[in-house]
Design a protein around this nucleic acid. Structure first.
Lengths: 198, 198
DNA sequence: AAACAGACCGACTAATCAGTCGATGTTAAT
DNA sequence: ATTAACATCGACTGATTAGTCGGTCTGTTT
């Protein structure tokens, strides 16, 4: 049975929970949470209305599940990019680039996140607990101890980087010419690096 | 008649259009656009349900009117702060500080703006037309021509500053101890300045 | 083969909400 | 005094929507 399930998954016949999250991602990024009825999500996912509430007792539960899913995926991608022997600056660059490229390639996830983080669903406290944020804060703390970064709360350094990534991604979306321009991307990183470095 | 209207205004008996916008501001910043029914806005404003649609044909019209109102107010405040003989860095500092302090003092406007700018109501094109944005871009262009700023699209420089202001305000809201700490605010500005300067 | 459990369906409902409408009051202009 | 134009009210409606429910199907356990 387990083997059969794996087979299904590999063939692209995703389980309905995943189908629902994918459908919601598309519709949310097009019309926002509130203009997207649950019935439409189920329809787009090709499943029944009722099954949505089987997997996610409320619409808010679905939205939260999607948030954690995205955070996990961007964390896994970022971690896969960094390497051990890197200097601090190299690590920061790798993380910055990973974030920018991941968000550009996963445009719907990016749109979802923007909405979510500025909605009443979001709270700072939830975010701080995620391993992605914790890893970033740890790096910021390192840089501060090494006297490389400005002497402020590492959380602030992280938030500064995050908002710059967001701005960079938005800019690159509206100016696709630069998306493969390595020189331009280096300039973008310089902006971010200069901001946090001493 | 005009005199009588002014008298009413001075006495705090605002016209109903303004009352509606003020009530909406409070409710929107507490619960968001979508969890705030128009009927509740009218009730909070102490006016009838129908009059809301007399002044704002749709809920979206109300929201847009509020957006323009806020942009106008922050623009007027910012302009009142700058002075002619200032250097470029002084002007940027003044604008940065004005934005940070205005947003801290007008917390509901700030919350509204965050929601609005990440909602389907918002479009980049609308924003770019506002005199506040145009003034800022002009300054950025000046700095670039004087070879003081990094050599990128002035719009990007403006967006960079804006997102840093946003981050700063959020941080100061969560860490009120720093709100009157001039040294800390200078460090915050250094972060922003280092980001854009060459 | 019976009992069980979880996936799944889709019609249904109770509540909510944006916007309407007809009526009345108020002010200004002719 | 009449008219016209706007301001105001609040009951009402039509549409929408999150979530429910009774029941079916399928695979597993005993």
């Amino acid at each position: 049975m387990l083997i059969f399930m794996l087979f299904l998954t590999k063939k692209g016949m995703l389980d309905k929970r995943t189908k629902l999250m994918n459908a919601a991602k598309v519709l949310f990024s097009e019309n926002g949470f509130y203009a997207t009825p649950t019935a439409k999500i189920a329809k787009e996912a090709g499943v029944s209305n009722g099954i949505l509430f089987h997997y996610f007792p409320t619409k808010a539960d679905l939205i939260h599940a999607m948030y954690y899913d995205i955070k996990d995926r961007i964390f896994n991608y970022s971690v896969s990019q960094i390497y051990k022997e890197a200097t601090l600056k190299e690590s920061i660059y790798t993380l910055w680039l990973a974030a920018v490229e991941w968000n550009l390639e996963n445009s719907e996830d990016f749109e979802f996140m923007l909405q979510f983080e500025n909605s009443p669903y979001f709270s700072n406290e939830i975010e701080k607990k995620h391993k992605y944020v914790q890893m970033s804060i740890e790096l910021a703390e390192q840089g501060r101890l090494q006297n490389i970064f400005k002497d402020v709360d590492p959380l602030l350094l992280f938030q500064t980087m995050s908002c710059l990534v967001e701005t960079n991604v938005k800019f690159l979306k509206y100016n696709p010419i630069f998306q493969n321009d390595v020189g331009f991307k280096n300039t973008l990183f310089e902006i971010a690096w200069d901001a946090i470095k001493k």
